[in-house]
Nucleic acid binder design. Sequence first.
DNA 1: GTGCAGTGCTGCAAAAATGCATTAATGTAG
DNA 2: CTACATTAATGCATTTTTGCAGCACTGCAC
Lengths: 203, 203
Amino acid sequence: MPAKASSAGLREQKKSETRTALRRAAVRLYAEKSPAAVTVQDICAAAGVSTRTFFNYFETKDDAVFDWDRRLSTQLVDAYLERPAAEPPFDALRRTLGTAVPLLVADPGWRERRRLLRAHPELVPKLLHSNSHMAEVLAEAVAERTGLRPDDLYPRLLAGAGLTALRAALRRWDPEASDAALLDLLDEAFGMLAAGLADPRGD
Amino acid sequence: MPAKASSAGLREQKKSETRTALRRAAVRLYAEKSPAAVTVQDICAAAGVSTRTFFNYFETKDDAVFDWDRRLSTQLVDAYLERPAAEPPFDALRRTLGTAVPLLVADPGWRERRRLLRAHPELVPKLLHSNSHMAEVLAEAVAERTGLRPDDLYPRLLAGAGLTALRAALRRWDPEASDAALLDLLDEAFGMLAAGLADPRGD
DNA sequence: GTGCAGTGCTGCAAAAATGCATTAATGTAG
DNA sequence: CTACATTAATGCATTTTTGCAGCACTGCAC
């Protein structure tokens, strides 16, 4: 009997290997050629599985490349749940993202992903899936933290607004600029939320 | 020379007719059978055009059914821009949605769309497209109203958070309940935003 | 009316995506 | 070890979606 159902198990291990192989192949080919020039067959040939298997792992061709984001959302939720219980949910999220962002910009995987998106802006809309998934799991985390239900107003509002803040900051940020600039933008965005989205012009 | 480039023109008129025919056929067939049981060919046969033409009008099969939402976003933006200039952007959005929601629940098209979504929840994720489109155009409207750029933090934050509030209220709302209940939920959600997303528990 | 430019519609081919049935390997109980 | 239940991987058929090229119609100038 395996020590842990999740970590051990030949079955799980092989599955994970196949998934990784597909993701790696997809990212490499996307970078080498261009997204449109890569077929699912190419990716599968490189990973050594059938085309049908590809769609058992990923819903769309591009999802393999953005598998990165799925894993990020897990990490983000874990970090959020580990914040001190005394911290109000809003501040906890603000600080979670404030901590995550520097790690993000330092992560080679994230940089590669970002390079791809800049080189091929047509991929940006394909991120919608990952975004909504992240809002979903984050709302559940907020619910757990506050004792509310995931369908209550507050968890969905906080998760949605917080991620909107992150996206707005990322969009506004010039990747050539410093990492600190991104943190400043994120802080400014959360400041606006904390201020109840009051008119930012001349008050 | 036609009176108006947009209203007149046999060409535009025919295009609009084709689009409407496709939308009507799609909605009718989706309701009669089930989404999965309807093929694009069915829709096109009912509308009298080729399958290729369908994809000249809509990006995906389901988009024809949700064409309704596209038109809604236009109306919403128009209504938002018509709010008194003295009104702060946040309050203007809050009141715009507060005015739009009663019209929404009374609209037969919206009710039909809602009935479809309840009968076939697998369609819900397909709405992501419409949602992000609405956030996009709404952010532009906020930018225009405030004199900021569409890529600035505030327009994206307000548009994103406001639509999140609308979605949260709609999700929480029991369609069997009164229309007033929905308005109350929307108001509560905007109240939370105005309060800077403070912890809603025991204060 | 004639001719020209623009662009919508169509068919065709290829790629993306899904459903279904089969096979083979893993995990589990006896 | 054997038998049985799960389920991942695959092939096949079908549908969905996209790119491309040709044809046809509209709008416009003369």
